[in-house]
Each structure stands twice: as C-alpha cells, then as structure tokens.
C-alpha cells in the first residue's frame, strides 16, 4: 500500500520539480521570483489543448506551445522587466508586475477559453499497469521518464554547455560578464525561455494525467512549485528538483496516513520545518565570499 502512495507521490513530485526548476532558473539569474510562473503553466496547457483541437497532432501541438509560451515570457521580460532593470527599479516593483502578469494571463485564458473545467485529451494513453500490488497509469511512466530526461538535460545544459557557462557568469557577476563580451540580454531571454519550456512540459504531463484544464489550474501548483524550490534551495537546479520530489512524496504519504484534507497544510508545514533547520533550503549554500 505504501509503495503505491510513494509511486503516486513521486509522479506528483516530479511535476513539482519541473515547476520548481522554472522558478529556480529565473531566480538564479535575476534574483527575482516570477510569480506568473503558475499562470504560464496554465497558458501552456491551454495552448496545447487549442493546437490539439485544431488537429495538428500531439507533438507539433506541444512544440508550438513551448515556442509560444517561451516567447510570451521572453517578450514580457524584454518589454517590462528589462525596462525596470534598466531604470534600477527596486525588486519589489518587478515582483508586483509578475503578480499582475499572472492575472492578465489568467484573465486572457478565461476570455478566450471560458472559466469552466475543460476536458484535456489523454495524450499519453490511458492504459493501466500493475507491478506486484502497485498499480499505475501508463501516463505516470511518461511523467517519470520525460521529467527526468528534461531535468538531467537542463542540468547538463547549465553545467556543460557554453550558454550554460554564460548563464552562470551573468548570474554571479553581470558586470564582469559584460567585459567578457557576453550578451546578458540574450542570456536572460534564453533563461526565461527554458523556464517557460519546463512549465509547458509539466502542464502537458499533468493535464494528460488528470485530463482537465482550466484558467486557474496553475495557482496552487505554482505555489507548491515555488515552495519546493525554496525548500530544496532556490537558484540551485538539482536542489529545486529534489525539493519537488520530497514535497510530492510527503503529500502522498499524508493522504495515506492522515487524510486528503491535510495535504496542503502538511506541504507548507514541511516547508517551515526545513527552513527553520536549513534557512537556505536543503541544498542551498552560503555564497562564496569575494576576497
């Protein structure tokens, strides 16, 4: 029985991990929380639904949604956030615009698609699989494989590629990055795009599993992803990912041993406890000081 809950928790945890990584990427480079991330997730889900309804096929629908969602974030950054940075606006100004942006997105989705819960096609299949006494949906296997591939891929990109090195350079010292001839604007745009991409993939996986979408679907999962990210160590990719997995499994075990009603409360109590013991999150570290 417990194995069943752990498998379900792991599934949910990987989705949280993908969302958490989206927050973490942007935070790493801009030291800013993109509160619109949950709404971006909902946007991605609706775009997939729209393209699938147009009979474009699942793969093109997902690719188009990634391009559109990533593009939306890049345009938002280039127009609003970049201007605020240029004018040296305080962090709080950027933060409130991201909250505003989340409502604009949700409002737009309500106008375009309606407020009601809509059916989402089971893009990842509906088959059930039984291993021993653990039962799971075939889509859970997809969630496992796709999210792990994406998380590992992102991590490799950041730690092994040239653009990843540039991202880390801008993150640590943007003035020095300028002197290396790194185009910080471009690097920030790439970061937002990757953040949008991870949200769309999370949306694809979870919407196919639950087979529903609605404009406010990103609110709670956005908050949970944010918490997971802080819990694991925001700005540190693997930390955020592990934070998501821990949160997912903890929630699932709560449902098993207490009741579904405690699920959200336990998630946040866990966050408090971990932060009290490790204020920078599980994998967060104090900065290496500059001599």
């Amino acid at each position: 029985m417990t194995a069943q809950y752990i498998v379900n928790g792991l599934t949910m945890g990987l989705i949280y991990a993908l969302i958490a990584v989206g927050y973490s990427l942007v935070f790493g480079i801009l030291k800013m929380i993109n509160m619109a991330h949950g709404a971006v997730y909902a946007f991605g889900a609706h775009m997939i639904l729209m393209f699938v309804t147009w009979n474009l096929g699942a793969v093109p629908a997902v690719i188009l949604s990634v391009l559109l969602t990533g593009g939306l974030l890049v345009i938002y950054d280039r127009t609003i956030l970049a201007t605020l940075r240029k004018k040296k606006a305080p962090g709080i100004a950027a933060l409130i615009t991201t909250i505003g942006f989340s409502y604009i997105i949700q409002n737009g989705l309500m106008i375009a698609f309606g407020t009601e819960i809509k059916a989402f096609p089971a893009l990842l299949g509906e088959k059930m699989i039984q291993v021993g006494n653990v039962k799971f949906a075939f889509s859970q296997v997809y969630i496992l494989v796709v999210s792990i591939v994406l998380l590992v891929g992102l991590s490799l990109l950041i730690h092994k590629s040239k653009i990843g090195l540039a991202m880390r350079a801008v993150e640590q010292n943007s003035r020095a990055a300028d002197l290396m001839g790194i185009n910080a604007k471009g690097v920030i745009s790439v970061t937002f795009f990757l953040s949008g991409m991870s949200a769309v993939i999370a949306a694809l996986l979870l919407a196919s599993y639950y087979q529903t979408v609605y404009p406010t679907m990103g609110v709670m999962i956005g908050l949970k992803g944010f918490s997971a990210s802080v819990l694991g160590g925001i700005g540190i990719l693997y930390g955020s990912a592990v934070g998501g997995i821990i949160l997912g499994i903890a929630e699932s075990l709560t449902v098993q041993f207490l009741s579904g009603a405690y699920r959200d409360a336990v998630a946040f109590i866990l966050l408090f406890l971990i932060l009290i013991v490790r204020p920078n999150g599980l994998f967060g570290k104090a900065k290496v000081s500059k001599v």
């Binding site: 090195l165 880390r168 350079a169 640590q172 010292n173 003035r175 020095a176 002197l179 900065k287 290496v288 000081s289 500059k290």
Partner: peptide, 10 residues
C-alpha cells in the same frame, strides 16, 4: 577590471 571581478563560484 579594478577589483579583479572574477566569477567566484566558477
């Protein structure tokens, strides 16, 4: 630059 400005965690 003045003050070295290395990337500390790289």
């Amino acid at each position: 630059p003045e003050g070295r400005e290395v990337f500390p965690e790289l």
